[in-house]
Design a protein around this nucleic acid. Structure first.
Length: 519
RNA sequence: GGCCCUAUCGUCUAACGGUUAGGACAUCAGAUUUUCAAUCUGGUAAUCAGGGUUCGAUUCCCUGUAGGGUCACCA
């Protein structure tokens, strides 16, 4: 019997910088880390990389946490919002989940200092007092002659007493890594396969501004080790950071995590998706009315697929079927049309009451309605009071026409307005004349006047209207003008459906208004 | 420029040496229809190029080409 090999615990992390809105590419990185951790029954950790204090703002961190709540992507360790949060997002201090708290790098400086001192003592790092401009100029020169633009270690062999003297004087300095010469750095990327670098292209890179201000490549290595991260899944743009980090890991004698560099999300011009290509932040998509399930489904399929023809995936299903091996090696262009289609699909299959509920904030924001009491609203333009059920009836007419929640406004505003404004000619169906139009409209008025309020439903309306429409040269002669009179729009739901929701009084009123346009 | 990565319909992708190169979005045509959607049916559309290896290459190797990433006291 061979003893069953015990699987190490999978621990992944998402380590964003709170320097702006959450990028759509970051979301995908986070999602893949989340999926792997959940699938392997491991842990998913959120770490805030705010070492750049100029650019980092707590309100970005706050927004990020909100976005992930919205997406239902929860973490096992990391910052969470305090329970009683009645403060400005800019001032909040997080609560922490998990054993390695705190999870903000700005609060972990004592840890970095310890490791930094260790490296300096062991001689794998050193103080450098070179002038910044000189170093930059040398790099430019090296690049111009076709060599790797690196710092070549001018300050490597400064005497200890010299260093102490400079430090005492307060001479500007940084801490550099003493990069070993001509060393092969190879690792097996879980997505790209074997990758090899030579250390000579790196030079003695800066790992800290001083003992209290460690820089990215250094903090990442320390934190991933301290937090026992097993898999680092991150964007392709970090591939060139991997050799630096591996060298640091070796210098510090730490364990090396597995790496998986996922391809970038590209814009239509095949470049890394950036702000100038349109919407790149997750909040933008949230506000425009993309559903979290749809967004996650779409994002997961950008560069990954299950190898089957199944394309509609819930988060739970993604957790089950996800695998790093199936991740694509090449970048994927962000295809908005497909996102729209998936979102429309999710909207269509959402239960009506749920959909209406998520739509209410859009109606309120557009100034169409205002909530008076729970599930009770006032139409701002008319002062009428309507129930949640009434809103559901309206939404039902447009559920299958919606691609994004924000589109609802232009579709349903007709139900929230006293009077419609449209061109008279819009009432004309094909080659219709004004007198034919008047005839049609009067016919509708005549028929509908006879109908009782309680019979104002789609079935009854069809019963009385359709036979009359058949008598016309074309059904559209009767139905098109009616639909436009009721909706004021070129495109809308059907006239009977609208009439049902409007009710008898408003329906007749609108037909009369249309007739007035003719005179 | 150095280093690294990548390459199948317009787009996202399937095919782990043998398929009429499959699916989805988009697009086109038809059906349905008062409009727009939704829905159904059908169509157009791809292996970057050149060399190898092999009985056989989308698939493996090499070269080229094209694209991308990265070269901070940012992350």
């Amino acid at each position: 019997m061979i003893a069953k090999k015990e699987n190490p615990i999978i621990r992944t992390r998402f380590a964003p910088s709170p320097t702006g809105h959450v990028h759509i590419g970051s979301l995908r990185t986070a999602l893949f880390n989340y999926l792997l951790a959940r699938q392997k029954k491991g842990q998913f950790i959120l770490r805030i990389e705010d070492t750049d204090k100029e650019r980092s703002k707590t309100e970005w961190e706050y927004e990020l946490i909100k976005i992930f709540e919205w997406l239902q992507l929860n973490w096992d360790e990391g910052p969470i919002l305090p329970k009683d949060l009645d403060i400005n997002p800019a001032d909040y201090q997080p609560d922490y989940l998990g054993a390695f708290a705190p999870y903000r790098q700005s609060e972990r400086k004592n840890i970095y200092r310890k490791y930094l001192q260790k490296m300096i003592e062991e001689g794998t790092a050193y103080y450098c007092f070179c002038n910044k401009e000189d170093v930059e100029a040398e790099k430019q020169y090296l690049m111009s002659i076709g060599e790797a633009p690196v710092y070549r270690g001018k300050c490597r062999n400064l005497k200890p007493e010299q260093i102490a003297e400079y430090l005492k004087q307060g001479k500007p300095s940084v801490i550099r890594f003493k990069c070993p010469a001509n060393r092969k750095i190879s690792f097996n990327d879980l997505i790209k396969g074997p990758i090899e670098f030579n250390s000579d292209i790196l030079g003695d890179f800066v790992i800290a501004k001083d003992l209290d201000n460690a820089l990215y490549n250094f903090t990442v290595v320390v934190d991933d080790s301290e937090m026992q991260i097993s898999h680092v899944i991150r964007g392709d743009e970090h591939l060139s950071n991997a050799p630096k980090q591996i060298l640091l890991i070796q210098a510090l004698g730490l364990n090396q995590p597995e790496y998986a560099h996922i391809p970038l999300i590209l814009s239509a011009n095949k470049k890394k998706l950036s702000k100038r290509d349109g919407k790149t932040s997750v909040v933008d998509y949230k506000e425009e009315g993309y559903l979290p399930d749809a967004l996650i489904n779409f994002i997961a399929f950008l560069g990954w697929n299950p190898g089957t023809e199944k394309e509609i995936y819930s988060l739970e299903e993604l957790i089950t079927d996800f695998s790093l091996e199936k991740i694509q090696k090449a970048g994927a262009i962000f295809n908005l049309e497909k996102l729209d289609w998936i979102n429309g699909f999710y909207i269509r299959r959402k239960p009506l009451a749920d959909l209406t509920q998520t739509l209410v904030p859009y109606l309120e924001k557009a100034g169409l309605i205002t909530e008076k009491a729970p599930e009770f609203y006032e139409i701002i333009d008319t002062g009428e009071e309507v129930s949640f059920e009434y809103l559901c009836k309206i939404v039902a007419l447009y559920q299958e026409r919606l691609k994004k929640l924000s589109e609802i406004i232009d579709l349903v505003d007709l139900f929230f307005k006293q009077t419609l404004s449209y061109e008279k000619n819009l009432l004309l169906w094909k080659q219709m004349t004004d007198s034919e139009l008047a005839l049609s409209l009067n016919k509708c008025l005549e028929i509908l006047s006879l109908l009782e309020e309680k019979d104002f439903n789609k079935e009854k309306l069809e019963q009385v209207l359709l036979p009359e429409a058949e008598k016309m040269p074309n059904r559209g002669n009767l139905l098109w003008p009616l639909r436009v009179a009721l909706s004021g729009k070129k495109n809308s739901a059907g006239p009977m459906e609208i009439a049902e929701v409007l009710g008898k009084e408003k329906t007749l009123f609108r037909i009369k208004k249309a007739l007035e346009l003719l005179t």
